[in-house]
Every structure is written in structure tokens, then in C-alpha cells.
Amino acid sequence: MQPEAFFLPVKTPGSTQISQRFCLFYPARGDVLRGMVLYVHPFAEEMNKSRRMATLQARAFAQEGYSVLQIDLLGCGDSSGDFGDATWQDWINDVVQGCHWLLNRVNTQVVPGKSPLWLWGLRAGCLLAVDAATQLNYPCNFLFWQPPAIGKPLLQQFLRLKVAWNMLDGQSKGVMDSVRTTLNSGLPVEIAGYMLSPALALGLDQAALRPPTYTDAERRLEWFELSTRDDANLSPVSAKSIAQWRQEGFDSRSHIVRGIAFWQTSEIEEAPELIEASTNSVRPSPHDLR
């Protein structure tokens, strides 16, 4: 199944500048459109490591009757701009624009109330999906792969790349302090080939997986974590976060699936059980069918 590749023109808010985002669109197979899915990729190198899994899952969704859009955010993948140009708000804007495109494209096929829009995020992509949903005037369901409750540890992990890089050169002491000082003084830092702007660092640092508030719609959350251990459980922080989503009225389910942390392994890896379980999870719940 070949997706349609195209560039989506995106206007920078508050400016007349237009730049291009590389997109892949997988049209739903079959006569009935069961829903729409927009994929939000993770941060920096994790995006490259997970490209294969994203493709496999997008194909599986399309096969099941979902129309799927993958968008490379500003300065990522084949989109225009440099990574160092991007701010957190730029990326939120890109996700919102991607949703608009998807809703427009499938407009004629949408059955009101029966064709949900799923925002599917991996790692930092989950945080972006939530922030975008609050700016999008359309109720969304959420499919999270290994979601972080907050962005702070992801930023720390990324900054540590610089420390590790220096360690391999023999000197790592004091590197983290100097990186943070540079960012705090409003200057970018170069980490593992990526230029990180202070605005992007701040956005990621302050991001949190807060459930969007919908007054009327019945919405769903499918939360996936991977583990290669047999006795894996949800971490307390994940359990707390899911409880918060339930409280906001989300019909929420958590799943622990056997599989490797493919977004960070040395080689490109697959987690087939995650794909199968995710594809099953977005099917209409018995409640919807009543």
C-alpha cells in the first residue's frame, strides 16, 4: 500500500510566511470510513528510530478503514526549516493544521458521531497532541504510545546527550550546568547534531499531559506502554495520570504490551504486538455500538 506523499503549506501564526510540511496520507481501505488518525512523532532522533513502526501502524489502521495522516513537524524529517528554528508552539500549530487538512480531506465520508478523530502520539508526540487538541475546535480521541506525564524528563534526557557526548571525549563534568546556563540566557545549544532553541526547550520543559476539557462529547483514551519484562506494571505516575483523564470524562484504558523500546534502540526494531493491540484498541467500544 503506497501512501500519498505531499507538502502541506503552513502559515506561521502572526506572519505572512508560508513553509512546507512533508506529509504522508494513507487513505482508508474499504467503503466505510471508520475514523481518522493523525500521527504525532516523537522528539529528535527518536523520530528517526520509530519511522518504521509508524509506517507499519499507519498501514494497519488504513487496512481497518481509518484514514491516516503523518506530518513531519517544522524542521523535522523532510519538512522545511531547520530543527533550530522550531518552537513548541510552531509544532502545536503544525499538528492543528494537519488535523484541519485531514478533516477537510475526508469531509464527505464522515458520519457524524461515528467517525472519530484519533490523535496518536509517541513519547513527546503525546504531549504535543494534547496541547494541539486544546487549540482544535473538534473533539479528539487519544492513542498514546509510551506517554510521559510531563515533558521535563524528556528534556533532561535530551540534554544528557551532550554530557554523554563529552564523556566519550573524556570530559563531562560541568557540561549540564553550562548547557542550562546557555539556554537560560536565551541562546541555542547544539546537541548530537540538533540545534535546540531556548523556546523549544522551554516548551518541552513545561509540557504536561493534561486532558482537554470537553463538555458534551464522549471521548476515549487508549494508553500503551511497552515492556520486555513479564511482571511489568503501570508506573505510579502513569496510573495517576490515567486517573486524571478518567476524572475529566475520558473512557480510558491502559495496556502493557510485550515489546522493545524501539524509539531508542541502537538498531531499528519492531514491536508487532503493539501494532496489533493498538489496531484493536481504536475499534468502536461496545458503548458506541449501542
Binding site: E45, R160, V163, A164, S266
Partner: peptide, 21 residues
């Protein structure tokens, strides 16, 4: 460098420990 950071993060998660920079 990426594997070093991944290793640290995984050790932190799996053993519930905190690594200083």
C-alpha cells in the same frame, strides 16, 4: 552517546534509581 543516555534512563526506570548528571 545516545545509547549511553538510553542506558541511564532505562536503569533509572527499571531499578527506580536517580542518576546525577
Amino acid at each position: 552517546s545516545m545509547a549511553v543516555v538510553t542506558l541511564i534512563t532505562t536503569l533509572e526506570e527499571q531499578f527506580g534509581l536517580v542518576v546525577d548528571d
